[in-house]
Design a protein around this nucleic acid. Structure first.
Lengths: 216, 216
DNA sequence: TGTTGTGAAATTGTTCACAGCC
DNA sequence: GGCTGTGAACAATTTCACAACA
């Protein structure tokens, strides 16, 4: 017998997850504009995608739009926030208090929305003790102990490439459940640990490739 | 085997382009380790992907590996650099000299590898005139004139969301051919202009989603 | 033997197009 | 008339598996 199974905890495809975060932001904008109902067409425009994709993406979370009308903006926003798992507050530390680390500490959207910076770490004595975005920079020596004691959820790595793997290992020993790596190198983690890698420099290189292939 | 015709300017799929930049870095590492020949398996390990994908990706640029042996690391690196279009130097400006903008100005891999920062801009009088990574911050009023006069290729946008569209329009009027947008908002550009959008905050949110769906 | 290069298969993601409902 | 929800068609990407070859 063919049986359509309910979506498993995370059957939502990853490209959809990324777009959901953009829809959420677009909905906040729309609500700010005083809009209470929004169509897939309008949301698509705001998010820079097409309407079919919006509807398909939203359908992963159920059906709650009104045909002929659109979606209740507030309800839709809440549904997305729920689906993204932002109901539970997550703590994170940033390792590497250089420019990028500082930028992320102050970044709205890291800072708010269910995420809480609880510590920053660096090896540079001139940075230790300084306060960045309300967080005091601590020495890396204390990273593992701190992460363990505080039960930190996520470690954000913004150290130079050669140090990234060692820092990652320390975070894992401390018990983080996920790593977000901005260092320009691949790091390996045990299978049970989630890890995402943000390749900042690829963006510029891919752009350059398209420029060239367009005939400069 | 009969030589297949060369791939068209950009028939290379985008996921492959992104990985090519990672292979390039891995090859530099390998060369640094004194390795002159590298197998798809080894490269895959270093780049954090599987070997089949490496071979498929490389095949988009032709065939120059040696069966039973592997690839000449230096030749492969050069081939990738060529394919990525990093033979031509590209100039860029950064608009928004806050933490993120400063981080990118100092970022190795933006800085080197065929990319050249030629200007930084901000509206904040306290930042104007300051030097960041050897680049003096100029007032945004001068952005359009500067971009036009210098023939700047790429504009990198690191301003707050509400200002992003206006800055993008200014860059486009100035004649940039591509935009790299780090502002947490969608910007629209004319069809002839390339635009990439980096969503920093999505990364953390997607990570949190997977954490939740794993059962915390 | 060891490793590449590549069609074919499998999987994943996007778009279409329209029934169903407001 | 307008707009959602969705199966089906389509497109892109990944993986498999093995022939070709040093």
């Amino acid at each position: 017998m063919v049986r359509k199974h309910l979506p498993k905890p995370s059957s939502i495809p990853e490209p959809t997850l990324v777009r959901l975060t953009i829809y959420a932001r677009s909905l906040r904008d729309a609500l700010g504009d005083g809009q209470t109902v929004i169509s897939s067409d309008d949301l698509a425009m705001r998010a820079g995608v097409n309407a079919a994709k919006v509807r398909k993406d939203l359908s992963h979370m159920g059906s709650f739009g009104r045909r002929g009308v659109g979606y209740d903006a507030a309800l839709l926003l809440e549904t997305i926030v729920q689906a993204m798992g932002q109901t539970k507050e997550r703590s994170y530390v940033i390792v590497g208090a250089g420019k990028l680390g500082s930028a992320l500490l102050g970044y709205n959207g890291f800072h708010g929305k269910g995420f809480m910076a609880v510590g920053a770490f660096d090896t540079d004595p001139s940075k230790i003790g300084r306060s960045i975005g309300g967080i005091t920079v601590m020495p890396v020596d204390e990273l593992e102990r701190f992460v363990m004691a505080e039960g930190v959820d996520i470690g954000i790595v913004t150290v130079p490439a050669p140090a990234a793997q060692k820092i990652t290992d320390t975070l894992v020993r401390g018990g983080v459940k996920a790593i977000l790596n901005f260092a320009p190198t691949v790091v390996v983690v045990p299978g049970c640990i989630l890890c995402r890698h943000v390749e900042l420099s690829s963006e510029l290189e891919v752009l350059a490739h398209y420029l060239n292939s367009q005939g400069d």
